[in-house]
Amino acid sequence: MSVPALELTGLTKSFGHAKIIRGIDLSIGKAERHAIIGPNGAGKSTLFNLITARFAPTKGTVKLHGEDVIGLQPYQINRKGLSRSFQITNIFPAMTVFENVRCALLWSQGYKYSFWNLVNNSRRLTEGADAILDQINLLERRNLPAGTLSYAEQRALEIGITIAGGADVIMLDEPTAGMSHSETDYITDLIMKVTEGKTLIMVEHDMGVVFGLADRISVLVYGEIIATGKPADVRADPKVQEAYLGAALEAEH
C-alpha cells in the first residue's frame, strides 16, 4: 500500500483542562477528497490548526507523505507541499489581487528570500499568476486591491492563493461559509476544478457541498472521530445520525 498523504495518530490537544481533540487516528490517501464534518465546537478548526502547526499538539503525530511534521513551523510544512485556507478570509487586503497570487507563487518557483531578482521581469511569475487568476475567474479584478472584492470573490481568491504554490495536499476550512446558493455552487465547482488530482481535506457545514465533493467523510464530535467512510456509509451510520447528521439532514430538506 502506498504511503498516505496525511496520517494522524493519537492526536490530542488540551487547552488547560479542556480536552478539545481527544485522540484522533485518521489516514487520508493520495488524491482523496476528504470532508470533515461535525457540530459546532466539535474541534474541526482546531484539528486543522494542529495539522498545519498553527497550534502544537499535546500528544500524537502528524505525518505528511510519511514524514513526521510535528515541531515544524507553518512555513516549513507549507514547503513540504501542504497548503491551507482559513475559516475567516485571510488574504493580503492592501495588495492587488494579482500581487496576492504572485506572492503565493514566489516560494514554489524558487525565489526564496532573494533580492537579486526583480519580480516584474519574471515572465513565469506573471504568467503563472495570471493562469491562477483565470482559473478562479478573477482576471478582470487583477489590479484591484484585494480588500475591495466581494465576499465570494475574496473566498475564491483565498482558494487561489492556497492552490497557487502547487501544494499537493490542500486543506480548506469552510470554503462556502456565509455564501448564497449560487455563490456556493460557484465555489464548489471551483474547488472541484482546482483540486483535480490533489489531496483535499475540507471542513464544511453545507451537506450539499460535502456529499457532492467528498470521496470519504469523517464525522468529528467532541474531539473524536465517530465515523469515517464513504458518504453513503456515513449517512447510514446510526451513530452519526444520532449525534449529528440526522438533524443536519432534516434541516437541509
Binding site: P74, Y75, S83, F92, C103, L106, Y113, N120
Partner: peptide, 24 residues
C-alpha cells in the same frame, strides 16, 4: 520589486498568511 521586498508587503498585511505561503 524583489521577491523579499514583495513579501515584506505581504508580511506587513498579514504575517500569518505569509507563513502559509512558505515564508517565515
Amino acid at each position: 520589486r524583489t521577491p523579499v521586498g514583495r513579501m515584506a508587503n505581504a508580511v506587513r498585511d498579514n504575517p500569518e498568511r505569509a507563513e502559509f505561503l512558505g515564508y517565515s
